[in-house]
Design a binder for these strands. Structure first.
Length: 276
DNA sequence: ATGGTAGGCCTCCTA
């Protein structure tokens, strides 16, 4: 009898990747899915409208896609071969940036779906641009609103399996960049950004990529300019916060550094969570 | 030497 053994828990491999245009990166993304055995991929910077997303190529590879995007900037998606249920195109308190009177839609920076029992969020945190730019205040508001909402999900269901994955555009530690002095006076390293990032821990979440890949100067992004990758001048800005029930399942994390090599690479590499 | 790259609806904006 099935009940004697309890419900089967499917093994799931979840990855996150800022692809910097899904249309120009399609072959690389499909090749990554094939070689990595990824079941759910949270994609950021798709840089396309929903109707432009190459869903047929993903379907052929066995993945269902849900995408959010309405022009050539930002854009997030989730590709899954273990289901995409209960899709959300924003979180409850997600701030609006720009000219809300002309464009009331929130930017396509957050997308959620339940995939194989895990609530997966694909997040593209606002860059901030500069400390004195309105986009910087927007970034801090955005992170605070996400934290507040994410805390509520755990209060409502402490056993929920939630993954907050994506490009966080925050350098949490001085050792997450080749030379932190190069970022003095710039975004990504400010005390306010680091506090906004760290605030997910007291909200009940664990940053599992740090837990499983603790080595300093381990990067997930290298600028296209000035030979940043050959010189290993990178940043660690792609992370995955996991709820307690999900964090307990994470058996390993891999940062696919090789994906940055060669012509036609994204400036970010995939980060893969292996669930037991 | 005050640049360099890569994406997009591409002579500008975003990262």
């Amino acid at each position: 009898m099935q009940a004697l053994y309890g419900p089967r828990v499917p093994r799931v491999r979840i990855a996150t990747w800022n692809v910097n245009s899904i249309r120009s990166r399609l072959d690389r993304v499909l090749a990554f899915l094939d070689r990595s055995g990824t079941d759910v991929l949270a994609i950021q910077e798709t840089k396309c409208r929903e109707e432009q997303f190459p869903v047929a190529a993903f379907a052929e590879a066995g993945y269902e896609v849900v995408a959010s995007g309405y022009h050539q900037w930002n854009g997030v998606a989730i590709a899954s071969r273990v289901g995409v249920d209960d899709v959300a195109r924003s979180f409850a308190g997600q701030p609006v940036f720009g000219k809300p009177d002309q464009d009331p839609r929130r930017e396509a920076r957050a997308l959620a779906a339940t995939c194989g029992g895990v609530r997966v969020w694909s997040l593209y945190v606002p860059h901030g641009r500069a400390l004195d730019d309105p986009h910087y205040a927007y970034k801090l508001d955005w992170l605070a609103a996400l934290r507040a909402d994410a805390a509520g999900w755990l209060e409502a269901d402490p056993g929920a399996q939630v993954a907050l994955t994506g490009d966080w555009n925050v350098i949490p530690r001085d050792t997450d960049v080749w030379d932190v002095s190069a970022f003095e006076g710039r975004t990504h390293v400010s005390a306010a950004e680091r506090a906004a990032f760290a605030a997910f821990e007291p909200a009940g979440y664990t940053e599992v990529t740090r837990e499983h890949v603790p080595a300093e100067h381990t990067y997930t992004y290298w600028d296209y300019q000035q030979l940043a990758f050959p010189r290993n001048k990178g940043l660690r800005i792609d992370f995955a916060y996991a709820s307690p029930a999900l964090a307990a399942r994470v058996a390993g994390v891999r940062i696919d550094r090789d994906e940055r090599r060669g012509k036609g690479a994204s400036d970010h590499v995939p980060v893969v969570l292996e669930l037991a």
